[in-house]
Amino acid sequence: MASSIKIRAKLRGDLVEVKALISHPMETGLRKDKKTGELIPAHFIQEVVAKANGKTVMTALWSGGVSKNPYIAFKFKGANKGDEVELSWKDNKGETGSTTAKIK
């Protein structure tokens, strides 16, 4: 699952802009299978944690209301070019994914 995240971190002035795309079905648990009429079980990311230089810069808590293959962007101060940003996620089934990117 190492490739479940595409991430880009860019330094602009003193702000690091992070943009990421995660591959995930994000099933709410409210959707029905069109053929069988049965509910598709919930399967969504609940938590995304972003760290830079060992510090947590952002924790996103999500419901199934975030779109499939989620996009997330945020900005923070206090890091430089070449520093690493680590992004990791956990879903309601206990599956996880993570990746790191160097700030450009």
Binding site: A50, T56, A60, G65, S67, F76
Partner: peptide, 22 residues
């Protein structure tokens, strides 16, 4: 269920988040 997402800002994070919702 109205609550879609909550972003807890940590050290250095500024008031900006972007995502896509249903």
């Amino acid at each position: 269920t109205p609550l879609v997402a909550s972003f807890q800002l940590g050290e250095g994070a500024i008031g900006f988040v972007s995502t896509r919702i249903k």
